[in-house]
Amino acid sequence: MTQTKFELKMGGATRAAFGKALVELGRENSNVVVCDADLSKSTNTAGFAKEFPERFFSCGIAEANMVAIGAGLASAGKVAFVSSFSCFVLNKGFEQLRVTAAYPQVPIKVVGTHSGISIGEDGPSQMSIEDIALACSLPGFAVIDPADEVSMKSLVKSAAALPGSVFIRAGRANAPVIYGAEHTFEIGKAIGLTAGNDLTIIAHGLLVAEALRTSMALGAEGVGVRVIDMHTIKPLDEAAIAKAARETGAILVAEEHLVDGGLGVRVAQSVTKSHPCLMDYVGIQNTYAESGSPEAVLDKYGLVARDVTAAARRLLARKRG
């Protein structure tokens, strides 16, 4: 679907799309069950709970128990979703994800909402800036961060059908719409959004839209920027990365996550095996953020198009030598 202009009209939050997808899944498959830890109105599992109360398990504020309950349900053949804020389900439930799901190969569907720093006002105790690193360290898990409501809805359904475990990252803030309703998505298959051979920007989640803004700004100056939506961070689409490295010679990775352990590290690891090239990283730098409106926090911590564009210019300058 490579094109040059994106309207980026504001859509709903990816967590809302997750909630809608869950309800549809519930109607399609009576084997789908959902666990939540007293955040169903925030995670948007409340819609499922209302329509399918007998298949919704209120676990209280006890994430470790919730993950293992989900693993028990999955062991008994259920398609078990467990959901909370990303920081709580990953950090408080990590040991349980490891021992009751990943290691025994029990397929569980984990959806962490309010991820990244775009949760805003609630501040760092509720922000999840290390969830990608944690989830990627669980052998066998697929890790997915959809950029908009269209891709979220589709990928939640794919995740339910996947035989293995999945972590899906969802955001609290509204996200610009990138895809048309008819677009299809495949877990593990990156999407090239723009064509260009001067530079590649690989992004996931909220930063895909920022990367597109950068692409449009630099495109107006005659610079060809290839934007790739790496909605699946694991398993990584290494073919798309190698092709971008070969054809553009420079890759910028942009993500709403710590630069340590995020997609950037995984892309760098991949290009060292295929076609080493110049790289740089836009992400959260070795710090926790703070309270503020989502826009103000993203701005202060360097995650808006301005920052992506500046990093892209620096990388282009290095490329030109």
Partner: peptide, 19 residues
């Protein structure tokens, strides 16, 4: 179940009971 890290089996059993 695979066990060894203590404290988790009761939760898994309750999940199975619910199923």
């Amino acid at each position: 179940a695979s066990t060894g890290s203590l404290g988790q089996g009761l939760s898994v059993a309750l999940g199975m009971g619910f199923a």
